[in-house]
């Protein structure tokens, strides 16, 4: 468990800002105690300081996970957000996409969202903005990147991709071994 370097912290916050914008602040300044980001084996964990203190009693080699894992830094020093970050991305998300019930299962198998699967979309979503994908019953399913702006979506043909898939909750099963 070590602090993030300046560079990595910057990468992390830029990435988070894509999805939740200025709400990043709310992750840091919380009324119920101080929370912080820590790095452990190239993975970023978001954890309360109280828990962090207790976790430091363990040998780092024997420590598997503390708090919530947000993502992983790749060898080329890019951050790949994991689906586990969804718990914190979903409540603060700026741009949202709702998929039709018929397309729910498709999305959970890792497919991009086409226009035909699109149920609703936030009004002023720009192109390539980070979006959180919900089911029609407001259950967060994953997140991705908007392939088109809201205005373009209206004109697009049914098979055109609206949202590029980045992570979905099906990964808990599909890639349980590589995720953690």
């Amino acid at each position: 468990m070590k602090r993030l370097s300046e560079e990595r912290a910057k990468i992390l916050f830029e990435k988070l800002a894509k999805f939740i914008g200025p709400n990043v602040k709310q992750l840091i300044d919380r009324p119920d105690g101080t929370y912080c980001f820590r790095e452990h084996r190239d993975r970023v964990y978001y954890v309360s300081e109280k828990i962090l203190k207790l976790a430091e009693t363990f040998n780092p080699n024997q420590l598997v996970c503390v708090g919530t894992c947000f993502g992983k830094f790749t060898k080329s020093n890019k951050l790949k957000l994991h689906i586990t970050a969804l718990t914190y991305l979903a409540p603060y998300a700026q741009y949202k996409i709702w998929v039709k019930p018929s397309f729910e299962q498709q999305f959970l198998y890792g497919n991009h969202v086409p226009k035909s699967g699109l149920g609703r979309i936030t009004e002023n979503t720009p192109q390539y903005a980070g979006t959180v994908v919900y089911s029609m019953s407001d259950m967060p399913l994953g997140f991705g990147v908007a392939a088109r702006s809201t205005a373009d979506c209206k004109l697009a043909d049914p098979l055109a991709t609206v949202c590029f898939h980045q992570a979905d909750i099906g990964e808990y099963i599909r890639s349980e071994d590589t995720l953690f």
Binding site: Y46, C65, G67, C69, T87, Y172
Partner: peptide, 15 residues
């Protein structure tokens, strides 16, 4: 770990 994340448990230390 997978179950904790899926179920939204964030006060846990897994060792």
């Amino acid at each position: 770990v997978a179950n904790f994340h899926r179920l939204g448990v964030n006060n846990a230390i897994v060792s």
